[in-house]
Write a protein that binds this DNA or RNA. Structure first.
Length: 599
RNA sequence: GCCCCCGUAGCUCAAUGGAUAGAGCAGUAGCCUUCUAAGCUAUUGGUUGUGGGUUCGAAUCCCGCCGGGGGCGCCA
């Protein structure tokens, strides 16, 4: 945020190094000083000292050790950095050069920047790049369970983060609306549930129940398999009766999904149906055979792409990708290859992100490599954002077959119920509508935060107790800090006070409390952390920052009264509270967590 | 057999190659005439799985080993 001042310091340091005949650095690496209570940036000279030692051989055998030499350089640099605008104290310690900002000057600068940016503080300028994020690939006609949750939460958060960072984001979803599971469902419906419609507020459970029932009937009585095969054949002929029911029941599923998407803050700009890309995928495979990329082993074998052979690799790496079954029916690969092409045709993408669990990592590499071999230059801009799966305690994999599923709607309902209990207890004077709003924000926020506050590569173990734990390092703590900030501002307004948020112009009148400096420091990091989270696809950086912000604000809240402060201090703190509220609200917003004004 | 991921406090997890490895939970002892106690304070807790290497400096990068999980020609 203070590039100008930093630049000035950098120029002076490099001038000093040149004057001393020391090797020049490509650029100076600045880090925040990792101690509380003061605020500044630091750089170290170990690298420089080590480089110097390498360049000039030590003949006497009594050269200064690197750490000590780094300290000498730091001290020398510190001496030349007198009267540096914007900085107060300067110190050289243990090889590090620490430049401390003049707290009030910078605090004002940070706060003003936040208040000007308002609800868009933290977001970056447009990068003029268009990126598609595909996430949520549920099967229609089946249940939605907590295993799907991480994908949706991660995908939607990544979209928000990329958007805030300055990318144009296209959110896409890829429902599995065809296949054996759909036929089974249709068979069960036609034979045992004809004419029924799903309960409007519990569609997905009903759809899932009917699927489970179909599965049960068929496994209990293998003779019925032929009926299902028969129905599949009718579907293949596009029998109008079957197609009509398929369209209608698919819509039920989609309506049910939409209900959950809305609650979870998930939305899409484009829906790609599996049914939409299947035929084109098969045509594409023909094309691949014609071009000699794919080998047609039918009828004895499937159509395959020998990736290692095509790439001339000695050691196995990409192996063999099967792109069409020996009976000519399609596979995931058939469709995924065409889908990738379609996405680029539709939107001329600069990047294409796939949010899919890590078990598909190898498969995704095969797909991208095949696209590269096909000659698509954008293949290198495809990226598989892999995340680890959600397990149940004892490393039990969630499976609808084993009956280990926790339905998403049950989880959301239970979380909301639990949150409502706590709201009733903590804040009974709220209206019923307010309680509803708060418990929803808390429950969904807690679920989202827990999922996002874990590195993508780490498995999540789902258990009810920790999923519904609203204490400690969790969304409600951050939300509560936001509520307190809102509360202070509300009281100021209620006192008839004009919220004096314009520049406070007497920076000499008082000094800042350490909690204020800490808070300002964290607020100033939001734009950088958003860029980092976008670059690394890690919402974790923002859950960390949001929590630290909340904690810093709570410390400030306990240490620094606002309403009862002296007028000048009170004005400063009011501005600081207003800035904190934006920083908290904005970081929660990109995480897809609602920031309530009361709770 | 080959490839990928993980291993940090009793538990769940953090930590751009950088200064004293940090939080939460659980435990113990306290704090509501105060801007909301969904909070705060104090306190306990570590050979960062293990052995080498690179580096001025390694939880972080490289190699080996141990333990756990996942993937590898017609599942999705």
């Amino acid at each position: 945020m203070f590039e100008r001042e930093q630049q000035a310091a950098e120029t002076r340091i490099r001038a000093y190094l040149a004057g001393e005949g020391l090797p020049d650095l490509d650029g100076i690496q600045w880090n925040p000083i990792p101690f509380n209570g003061e605020w500044g940036i630091s750089t170290s000279f170990f690298q420089l000292a080590a480089q110097e030692a390498r360049q000039t051989p030590d003949l006497s055998g009594k050269r200064t050790p690197v750490p000590q030499r780094a300290q000498e350089i730091a001290e020398g640099a510190a001496k030349t950095l007198t009267a540096l605008p914007g900085f107060g104290r300067i110190e050289a310690i243990r090889g590090y050069l620490n430049l401390y900002f003049s707290p009030l000057v910078y605090a004002h600068q940070v706060i003003s920047t936040v208040l000007e940016g308002g609800s868009s503080y933290g977001c970056g300028a447009s990068k003029h790049q268009r990126v598609m994020v595909e996430y949520s690939q549920p099967n229609t006609h089946k249940a939605f369970h907590v295993g799907h949750l991480r994908n949706m939460i991660l995908g939607s958060a990544i979209c928000n983060i990329l958007e805030c960072a300055g990318y144009e984001v296209i959110r896409s979803t890829y429902p599995g609306d065809i296949g054996l599971h759909v036929i089974k469902w249709l068979w069960n419906y036609m034979n045992f549930h004809a004419g029924e419609t799903p309960p409007p507020d519990d569609i997905t459970r009903w759809m899932g129940d009917l699927y489970a029932e179909a599965d049960r009937r068929l496994s209990q009585n293998p003779d019925l398999e032929s009926e299902v095969r028969n129905l599949f054949a009718r579907w293949d002929r596009r029998d109008p009766e079957v197609v009509e029911l398929w369209v209608k029941s698919r819509q039920w599923s989609l309506d049910g999904f939409e209900q959950m998407y809305r609650q979870l803050g998930v939305r899409f700009d484009r829906v790609y149906f599996e049914s939409e890309v299947e035929d084109h995928g098969k045509t594409l495979v023909d094309d691949l055979i014609g071009r000699g990329i794919a080998v047609d082993e039918r009828p004895e074998g499937p159509v395959i792409v020998r990736l290692d052979d095509l790439l001339g690799l000695e050691k196995e790496k990409y192996r063999v990708l099967v792109v069409l079954r020996s009976d000519g029916t399609s596979l995931y690969a058939t469709k995924d290859l065409y889908l990738a092409i379609l996405k680029n045709q539709d939107y001329a993408l600069d990047r294409s992100i796939y949010v899919i669990d890590v078990r598909q990592a190898f498969y995704m590499q095969q797909i991208f490599k095949t696209l590269e071999i096909m000659g698509y230059p954008w293949a290198k801009d495809c990226y598989h954002l892999a995340y680890e799966i959600v397990n149940l305690p004892g490393n039990v994999v969630i499976s609808s077959r084993d009956g280990t599923v926790v339905l998403l709607e049950d989880l959301i309902r239970e979380a909301t119920r639990r949150a409502m209990q706590i709201v009733e207890e903590k804040n009974p004077e709220l209206t019923n509508a307010q309680k509803e709003e708060v418990s929803h924000a808390v429950a969904l926020g807690a679920l989202r935060y827990t999922m996002l506050a874990r590195d993508n590569t780490k498995t999540v173990t789902f258990d009810w107790e920790s999923a519904l734990d609203f204490n400690g390092q969790a969304a409600p703590y951050v939300q509560y800090a936001h509520v307190r900030a809102c509360s202070i501002l509300r009281r100021l307004e209620a006192e008839g006070e004009q919220l004096e948020l314009s520049e406070n112009l007497s920076p000499e009148g008082f000094s800042l409390h350490p909690t204020e400096i800490q808070l300002v420091d964290l607020i100033s990091r939001l734009p950088g952390e958003i860029q980092r989270a976008a670059a690394e696809f890690k919402p974790l950086h923002l859950t960390n920052l949001a929590y630290e912000l909340a904690r810093a604000f709570t410390d400030f809240y306990n240490a620094c009264p606002v309403l009862k402060a002296e007028p000048e201090v009170r004005t400063f703190r009011t501005r600081l509270v207003a800035a904190t509220r934006y920083a908290l609200a904005n970081s929660l917003k990109v995480l897809g967590i609602h920031a309530p004004e009361y709770m």
